[in-house]
């Protein structure tokens, strides 16, 4: 029972945070949106813990709440946006239709998927398993064996991102 309560609290928090990012009145200011996003990310880490994804919960904090948020905040500071940088809010029919479509997708998928998995129950992990499931050890083994190749290739992805970011933001000249 306690678990359910925690889940619903966290879920509500996550959703509210996400909505705060997206729904205009709460997030005129990008900085406010960033704070809301930070909330979402952090609460999400809690949900990860509930799913026994301990390592990822930590990474969620480190990568998202840490690195990604810092990037956002940097960008916000760098651009120093003011309100007049934006034309008056436009709510177009396409956007409404698109948002409605996204909403429809979500409800439909939730219904279909919910029906499809209604009989699924979580695998019962033994106590021993439970203590290691989602730990650095387990995930590390997966990364070093099955996911070795993607893990290595992630390096190239990051390299591309670095070069790309430099290329896009440099003012003139070469890579330096």
């Amino acid at each position: 029972m306690a678990e359910q309560i925690v889940f619903y609290i966290l879920a509500t928090g996550v959703l509210l945070g996400a909505l705060a990012v997206v729904v205009p009145p709460f997030a005129r200011n990008p900085l406010h949106a960033a704070v809301a996003l930070l909330t979402t990310f952090s609460l999400m880490a809690g949900l990860f813990v509930m799913l026994s994804a301990h390592l990822l919960a930590i990474l969620q904090i480190v990568v998202y709440a840490g690195a990604v948020m810092i990037l956002f905040v940097f960008a916000i500071m760098l651009l120093n946006l003011r309100k007049q940088d934006f034309s008056p809010a436009k709510i177009t029919a396409w956007k409404i239709l698109g948002a409605a479509a996204a909403f429809l997708i979500a409800t439909r998928i939730a219904m279909v998927a919910g029906a499809a998995v209604s009989t699924h129950t979580a695998v019962d992990l033994s106590l021993e398993q439970y203590s290691t499931f989602g730990s650095v050890h387990d995930v590390g083994i997966a990364l070093a064996t099955k996911y070795l190749l993607p893990f290595e290739i992630t390096a190239i992805l990051l390299l591309v991102a670095v070069i790309g970011a430099l290329v896009v933001t440099r003012r003139q000249g070469g890579l330096r």
Binding site: E3, Q4, F7, A11, L51, A113, A115, H120, L125
Partner: peptide
């Protein structure tokens, strides 16, 4: 341990 149904997580 996980008493929350999968459908909730998916939702």
């Amino acid at each position: 341990m996980t008493n929350i149904p999968l459908s909730h997580w998916l939702a």
